[in-house]
Amino acid sequence: MEPFTTHTGVGVPLRRSNVDTDQIIPAVYLKRVTRTGFEDGLFAAWRSDEHFVLNREPYRAGSVLVAGPDFGTGSSREHAVWALSDYGFRVVVSARFADIFRGNAGKQGLVAAECEQSDVEQLWKLLETEPGTQVTVDLVEKTVSAKDFTARFFVDDYTRWRLLEGLDDISLTLRHEADIDAFEQARPNWKPVTTPIATP
């Protein structure tokens, strides 16, 4: 994972709440077995509308998405994060993220920046009155700013540290392999195993 410290790019106002992962990427795009190339599925249904924000200049080249509350609800599909990243988004700003989406974003270097809804509203107004406004997201200072506007955002310390360092979880966990071995030794022997059993 690439380390993330700060990012500056065109902000995109998405005035919708409950942007579920079926909207971010419909299931029909989940059939691929690769990890890249999901940008064509991003907001696929909405992008068929020429007035959709990502079909308009200069939002088309946006990299900071500013969305309504409850972003990323629904399915666990990490493809939602891949689609946003593959399109070019580095940050999503929202007042509330679904838990699984937030976790998935943190694993893939996409910053899920949680702001007050009032800050989201201000950003929306700014991005709509001055399309193409650059938004800067500073993960060190935990601030999102554009023109004269600056707001704090929340991201948990552990995710922030991993994003800043570009660390991947599996190698971090494997440092504790001895603890895992010890835990396995102590598990009750009646816990289920999936090894096939002759079925009638």
């Binding site: 666990s76 599909r77 994060v81 976790g103 893939q108 979880d169 599996i170």
Partner: peptide, 10 residues
């Protein structure tokens, strides 16, 4: 609980 693909690999 449900998990994403990175967690599946983990």
């Amino acid at each position: 609980f449900g998990i994403g693909t990175s967690e599946v690999e983990h």
